[in-house]
Simulated scan of single mutants.
Amino acid sequence: MNKTTYTNMAKVWEFTEEHALGLENDVLRKARADAEAAGLPQGSAAQANLLRFITRTLNATSIISVGTGSIVEALQLVEGLGGAGQLTAVDSSARGITIIRSLFADFSDSVDNRTTLRAVNTSPTVFLPRLNAGTYDLIVVSGVASNYAPSFEQAANLLKAGGRIIFTDMSGSAFPDDDKPNAMRTLLTQVEDDERFEEALTPTGTGMLIAVKR
């Protein structure tokens, strides 16, 4: 591709992102503002909106969100659950978990929301091995580099057949973590080499790797 093509692609990304930001409701706008005010940078709006769409079209009822202050993504997953099911939020940031709990309560007060939230402030290495096998439709992983490999290590055990694990920020650019770009390249190779999964890499947001359990 030449320079003009890359410039046009950047314009498409910018339009998509601005459009997704415009679609965010008041709860999501407040979540984004509160999280960023607390020093927790939020990811791409288009990426979070795609996660909501995937959740809805999967008819998912049980999701694990592994992140570091990924507030907007967690709430979009709740939106995708359609007011039912369960979201398990695993966050290595205590501030992130506090904000998720607070905004989830606000969201539940404003709509008919019967979604169950289980929010824990710990690392995926500690928590994920404790969960029941074969009971989850979707796992979404974001945040610091150390969240990714442990989550994939547990994915085949935790997911139902046909379940998905989605890794965000595959470009390694959205979170200030010097180890992330190398970790993302290693992860991509690991997922592609794993015969238990079928995968696709997409440039949506800051890059998403979607893998389906066979």
Rank of each mutant, 00 (worst) to 15 (best):
A89F: 11
V72W: 02
V72K: 01
R101K: 15
R101C: 13
G80E: 00
E73H: 14
G96T: 03
G96D: 00
I99T: 06
G80M: 02
L75V: 08
T98F: 12
G83L: 00
L87P: 05
A74F: 03
G83H: 01
R95A: 15
I100A: 03
L77N: 05
V90Q: 04
S70L: 09
D91H: 05
T68W: 14
S92Y: 06
I99C: 10
S65R: 01
V78C: 02
I97P: 10
L81A: 06
L77M: 00
G85H: 02
G82E: 00
L103V: 11
L75H: 08
D91I: 12
L103A: 14
G82I: 02
A74Q: 04
I99D: 07
A84G: 15
S70D: 15
L81K: 02
L75I: 04
S102A: 12
I99P: 04
I64W: 07
G82W: 01
L75N: 09
S70V: 14
S93T: 11
S70A: 13
V90G: 11
E73T: 15
A94C: 09
L77Y: 05
G69S: 12
L103F: 06
L103G: 11
S102W: 04
G69N: 13
L87F: 11
V90M: 11
G96C: 04
S102R: 08
V90S: 12
I97G: 10
I97T: 14
I100V: 11
E73R: 12
G85D: 04
V72A: 07
G69Q: 05
T68S: 14
G85P: 01
R95N: 15
G69I: 10
Q76T: 13
E79I: 11
S65D: 10
T68F: 15
A94V: 13
T68Q: 12
A94W: 15
V90P: 13
L103Y: 10
V72R: 01
S65I: 05
V90A: 13
G83M: 00
G80P: 07
A74M: 07
R101F: 11
I100H: 00
G96H: 01
L87A: 02
V72T: 09
V90T: 15
G83Q: 01
A84T: 14
Q76F: 14
S102G: 14
Q86P: 09
S92I: 15
I99H: 02
Q86H: 13
G67S: 12
V72S: 03
R101A: 15
S93F: 10
I100Q: 02
A74K: 01
G85F: 02
D91W: 06
I99E: 02
L81S: 04
S92W: 07
S70K: 07
T68R: 10
T98Y: 11
G82A: 05
G69H: 07
V90F: 13
V72I: 08
V90E: 03
A89R: 01
I64P: 08
A84C: 10
V78E: 05
L77R: 00
E73N: 12
S102H: 11
L87G: 10
A94I: 13
G80H: 03
S93M: 11
T98E: 09
G82Q: 01
A94M: 13
G67T: 08
A74Y: 07
T68I: 15
A89E: 07
S65V: 02
I71G: 04
L81R: 00
Q76P: 15
T88P: 03
G82S: 02
T98K: 09
